[in-house]
Design a protein around this nucleic acid. Sequence first.
DNA 1: ATCGTGATTCCCT
DNA 2: GGGAATCACGATA
Length: 213
Amino acid sequence: MRAPSLLPPRGGGLSSEGVRDWSPAFERPLGRSFYARPTARVARDLLGCRLVLRPSRGSEGWRAGRIVETEAYVADDPANHASRGRTERNRSMFLGPGHVYVYRIHQVHCANLTTARGQAVLLRAVEPLTPLLAGPRGPGLLCRAFGLDRAHDGLDAVVGELRVLPRDGPPVEVARAPRVGIRLAADRPLRFFDGRSEWVSKRPARPRRKVPG
DNA sequence: ATCGTGATTCCCT
DNA sequence: GGGAATCACGATA
């Protein structure tokens, strides 16, 4: 059996040594049509898929993780950054399906993949498939682990340096729950996670909002 | 529960 | 332009 912490040996790049030359570059990423579907469906189907970041200036090797937790931000959704239309910050949410939207909040960055215009899926946690700089449990830590920041905002996730490869590895036990850390529309069950994963972020179920009495 | 921390938006001028 | 309110976080207790 393959060690869970290694990238799966698929596709080309086979050397006489074996599979060590495997690279995500040899695999076909999820195409535009994957993202051009209802956002909650995309959020669910991203579970088990592999998020991969191509090495760029200075960094060596690909970084990859198996997606285990996502949230959908949909139409008529006051928690959605685009709920009040297009702004300078959220402009990459309007580039069409399959683009990267990275924003900064407090001291951290959070990464999304866009679906329909003005809708996106927040990537909350992955299981490391390569050595990462931080435990990617939670959207801010995920970005830190991959080195994602506003420089990655607006990239095309179908052909760019950040991509998603099809589901692979152990089966996903899909679970749904309310989204984390939001005030508005806090009851909608638009958070999806793999109930079997150790890497799902945990936070208080019901933080904010004063209750009278 | 609260705190540190800064970008962004909105509602004014 | 300015200033207040807001915020899809993470670390702490």
